[in-house]
Computed example of a mutant assay.
Amino acid sequence: MTPLTDDLRATLYDAENVWAEDDDFFLALANEHPVSRVLDLGCGTGRLTTALAAAGHIVMGVDPDEGAVTAARLKPHAEDVDWVLGTSSALDSGARFDLVLMTAHVVQAIADPGEWRRTLADLHRVLVPGGRLAFDSRDPAARAWERWNPQESHGMTELDDGTRVEGWYEVTAVTDGVVTLDEHAVLPDGTHDVQTGELAFRDEDRLRGDLRREGFTVDHVFGGWHREPVGRGDGELVVVAHR
């Protein structure tokens, strides 16, 4: 297996993940309070982060993937974002935010229970009293991982230069609510990249309990991007809480 370069992986990510209803939801949430101090934790290549800056918010984007942050710095309005390479542990002790966002199911990538608790504690620390935390996580009841197989997940993505990339997912284990999967990408020259990851599937009760233990009050849990009840939306758990 031949790994993709960081630049190509970021380009592929942006081609596969374009602006969608989830971005509309989180941007609208931020815009309920103009000129907010917003932390985009797990900002990736900065699609939403730069849109928040363009909307006039004071924005910090944090992500541990150096290639993704490098790509984010090249986007329009990136100069208006404070970019930090790292996780929530990299946040300055004096940092304060009115809103923290964790989008694109980034909370599921925090699969280790200890790291998840530390992340929530870090976010509680940097939010002002009454400050909000919002994130999305796939509802385990929808069993999305059952469709992550080479047949149902197979697809082709065309990059801006015309390169066509073949891709698919393959689940290798499901253990105690954690799904281990391989993400495959194959270029026309035969380059075959495989990224292995773990995603934690936490149900609504678990998320509510985890947030409560770290001092948060849950305001809403929606099942989709139009604020549907859980189980009647898009197979999502869209959580809005406050400190």
Results as ranks from 00 to 15, higher is better:
Gly131Glu: 02
Val128Thr: 13
Asp210Ser: 12
Glu146Pro: 07
Gly155Glu: 12
Asp63Asn: 04
Gln108Met: 15
Asp80Tyr: 09
Leu123Ile: 05
His220Arg: 15
Leu123His: 03
Thr49Cys: 06
Val179Leu: 06
Gly209Arg: 10
Leu123Asn: 03
Asp23Ala: 13
Asp122Gln: 01
Gln108Ala: 10
Val230Ala: 09
Phe25Arg: 13
Asp40His: 02
Gly215Ile: 04
Leu99Met: 11
Arg117Leu: 07
Leu120Glu: 05
His77Pro: 02
His77Leu: 05
Glu152Gln: 15
Asp122His: 10
His242Met: 03
Asp63Lys: 02
Ala28Ile: 01
Leu41His: 02
Leu29Pro: 05
Gly61Tyr: 05
Asp136Pro: 05
Ala111Cys: 09
Phe26Ser: 02
Ala68Tyr: 14
Asp136Tyr: 03
Glu214Ala: 08
Arg143Met: 08
Glu32Pro: 00
Phe26Glu: 03
Pro3Trp: 07
Glu204Asn: 03
Glu228Gln: 15
Val186Phe: 03
Trp148Leu: 12
Asp6Met: 08
Ala51Thr: 06
Ser88Trp: 01
Leu127Met: 00
Gly94Lys: 09
Asp22Ala: 12
His192Asp: 12
Asp160Pro: 01
Cys43Val: 08
Pro113Arg: 08
Asp160His: 03
Val126His: 00
Arg73His: 09
Met156Cys: 11
Pro113Thr: 04
Gly94Met: 10
Ser89Asn: 09
Val126Trp: 00
Arg164Thr: 14
Ile58Lys: 08
Pro64Lys: 01
Asp23Gly: 09
